[in-house]
Design a protein around this nucleic acid. Structure first.
Lengths: 358, 358
DNA sequence: TGTTAGCACTCATAACCGTCGAGTGCTAAC
DNA sequence: GTTAGCACTCGACGGTTATGAGTGCTAACA
């Protein structure tokens, strides 16, 4: 057995591929006869049965019960994805849909990712996921204040990764437009580039000094700054098209599907998964228990990080049954991420159109 | 029959209420004996059976099959909600959870609504919904520009309803910080308060004139302004805790649940429903087919608009099976909306704490 | 040594069928 | 108008059987 596993014969590969393909298509166990009918084999069903028995012994196949056909095991899918998969050629219509991302009105990364996840879901008929990971190293690159009326203004924070957040601030006392501008200047001078941990008491005291008569603003403002920093590296997960999953019988177990839904809502598991798995921009394929999330043992998660200047800004992914159409999913995510990374190209680089994002 | 429907006898009401209560609790049809055991009746099961037969004839009850108990009809629920419902007294723990909304860090309305929908879901064990309706009458009250680097700045728009949106803008040519400030000033002078339809070519021409040498900015900027306006009155629906629904047997039909999920993702139906049903700030209860959305015929939707200064800023709601615990849901939504409306009180009014939202 | 035909065997699925029991409607007595 | 009693209905449950897909094994064959 040990050296039998060294390599699979061509015929074994062919049979394994046929089984995975048929199972992805149909969902049920596939038998020797079905493989024969699929074509491409020039031997009898008995021979195929022998090969299948060996493939099962090697761990690539499983048998639900004695008189059923074979189903790919996790190892079988893994081998399929690594070695057997065929390039999926997208239809012109699919390419057109993806390209429309470019033309569409959009600016901020979260909107792009959200649109991409919807598209991923619709193109693949699985669930699309847009992820903005917790970075842990976010800071605010620039502050701005917008005066609205006495005792009411807005604080705008532009994060180092380009994200922008705003907060309304109400005060008990009147605040003049000049004070708001001065506040923004002071925050830029003292806090720009600092993470929450590096904002110390002396810095806050200096801020109060700078604001002089308006030092009463600093208290509420610091709370808002803290909230902004927290929100900026909280990470985010957006899910699109969960309803698609229910068309696959593997999700007909209500209780199990409910747990999956819960995990998708909590977002923690997904965020952890993506941040711990991230292979510097490559597509990741997590089949079944390869993701350490129990509730996803019957599912597969494929995701592609979106990287700019070596920084992982987000990821788009697809969640579906283990027997998902990996070829199509991989092609779709490649296509989408290529478009997204074009959208957020290094700022100064070739720019033909009007606006885009950063 | 016609005059028999004039009014329900006290005993009929009592029986109807007992049936609805028991059905909400248990989910199955309820029989005459069960009502007897629930207590409060001083007659025999035979009498109750007679009354039930009459209630069925009047349309308040339905019988799944000949030898089953009775189930409330839509009319039955309606009567229950309108006339029979008992005030639900929230536990101190529930009240505490809601009050924590106040203390929690938060600023923007969408965050408040989102948190409220999560809370609604967790407190009731149904699905929570946060809605920001399309208003159709949004305009931008104030613009601000934030210069980041040559040929890259941010446009901030503060909408008339307090919402804030930002967009990155990249240009083909260098833009100086002064140009960005001037742009904001010009936009404020020319566009503040205007809806998209009222932004005419002469106005745009005047903007170009004002920007002088930087008039090249106007093209891309106008596209962004249009996007901002579109996004601001696009409306939004956030859903929390869909997984809760799967604990109720009425959602065990996968295909049906899938359609419901789809409707919740599309958001259009929900937005339409809320905007067409809105009864000036009162709680709305839509039972089964009362909402015109087919896929919700086996569900009930309860929602409460959030109103400030006569303007409907949003709504929070709960979606669940028709046999939902209306008493608890109504109390929860009242509690939540009370808290939310406190959070967004008219700006200048009593303000004890630091910041909040507007 | 690898391939193939034939055949007995296994096991999930579906259909069928009787039993059980909850709950009713009806009737007759109070 | 209320109640006890009783026959009746009908879904739920559990066991049995028939079906058929697909296997493993054996023996013959190239």
């Amino acid at each position: 057995m040990a050296d039998g596993e060294r390599e699979l014969s061509e015929r074994k590969k062919q049979i394994l591929k046929a089984i995975v393909d048929a199972h992805i298509e149909g969902g049920g166990p596939v038998g020797s006869k079905a493989i024969l009918q699929a074509g491409g084999m020039n031997c009898s069903s008995a021979t195929i049965r022998n090969e299948m028995a060996e493939l099962e012994e090697m761990g690539y196949l499983e048998q639900p019960h004695a008189s059923a056909g074979r189903v790919p095991s996790e190892l079988g899918y893994r081998f399929y994805v690594d070695s057997l998969i065929e390039h999926y050629a997208m239809t012109t219509h699919e390419i057109a849909q993806i390209n429309n991302l470019l033309r569409a009105k959009m600016g901020e990364l979260d909107q792009i990712l959200s649109a991409a996840s919807h598209l991923a879901s619709n193109l693949t008929n699985y669930t699309g996921i847009a992820i903005q990971p917790r970075t842990g190293a976010v800071n605010i690159a620039k502050f701005e204040g917008i005066y609205l009326e006495p005792s009411h203004f807005i604080l705008v924070a532009v994060a180092s990764n380009g994200a922008v957040k705003t907060k309304h601030i109400h005060t008990d006392f009147k605040v003049l437009p000049e004070s708001v501008s001065r506040l923004a200047e002071s925050l830029n001078a003292m806090l720009a580039g600092l993470s929450a941990e590096r904002i110390t008491l002396p810095i806050i005291m200096e801020l109060e000094t700078r604001m002089g008569a308006d030092s009463g603003m600093i208290g509420p403002v610091m709370k808002v700054v803290y909230d902004l920093l927290s929100e900026l590296d909280a990470g985010a997960v957006q899910v699109a098209g969960i309803d698609h999953l229910l068309q696959y019988p593997e999700y007909s177990d209500t209780a199990q599907f409910r747990e999956l839904l819960g995990a998708l809502e909590k977002k923690d598991d997904i965020l952890d998964l993506v941040s711990t798995t991230g292979g510097e921009g490559d597509i990741n394929v997590l089949i079944g228990s390869e993701s350490r999330v129990k509730v996803m043992n019957n599912s597969a998660l494929v995701f592609k990080p979106i990287v700019k200047d070596g920084q992982t800004l987000g990821a788009i992914g697809v969640l579906g049954p283990r027997r998902m159409d990996y070829a199509k999913v991989l092609a779709t995510l490649e296509g989408l991420s290529g478009n997204i990374e074009n959208l957020i190209l290094p700022n100064k680089q070739l720019h033909n159109g009007g606006e885009s994002d950063g």
